[in-house]
Amino acid sequence: MIARKSFFIDTTKCTGCRGCQAACKQWNQNPATKTRQQGMYQNPPDLSTATFKLVRFSSGTGPSGDPEWYFFPDQCRHCIYPPCKMAADEKAPGSVILDVQTRAVIYDPAVKVSPEAFKAIRAICPFDIPRYDEKSGRMAKCTMCVDRVSEGMLPACVKTCPTGAMQFGDRGTIRKMAEERLDEVRKIYGRASLVVPEAVRVIFLLKDYPEKYYEYAATEDVRGITRKTALKQLLHPFAAVEEWIG
């Protein structure tokens, strides 16, 4: 049996080359969409049923006055307790499944979802990941490349990453790797953090405040209550269970 998997995405090593975004399209044979230049490198502008992985670009001026340019290879976090599944189980049963081996959160392409159900599913995702094709009534997002992973291969995005910004492996190893790297990075970047590592299987390391990368990089609520805190509250009772899930 394949041990439960996780990703570690170390954005301090990401150079924005978009190898992952391209490899994701290639492996999933997702079509290109017609885009135009809109005053930024990021393109297509957002995730879609044809784009499961998107490098988000964000630039500005840092506290030292130097420019900063952040790259955020966005994708489904494969939550340990996926809220989308919670919503789906009520609104569109069977459309969201958990893969038994990897614990990947999968949107079953065989199951049709109503626009209303999708609205609820998307609304509950703290990371704004679910996308919907109105024509076919299907939802789509990152599949963790379960087809590859169950054959012992790396997900396409991880395999193609040149710099080691993306890692994939057994959850225990990945969590340890993430914590160790955080300690290293913190020595230089005091604001560095891991985004809810206990709640998700795709653990991002950010060197700066999450909102500098992208609105949904972490789990910031409009009222100032962080989703991170909320998720922590949510998941705290299950710390032991999480270890069991692996």
């Binding site: 189980d89 009520e90 893969d99 509250q233």
Partner: peptide, 28 residues
């Protein structure tokens, strides 16, 4: 989240961890 967390395991919000499914797709 805080209040109802305990009910998740019981499927109180329709969230069910137990019947995980093998998602099979042949390696192309």
């Amino acid at each position: 989240s805080g209040a109802t967390a305990g009910t998740f395991m019981m499927g109180g919000l329709g969230f069910d961890l137990s019947p995980v499914k093998a998602y099979a797709r042949e390696l192309r």
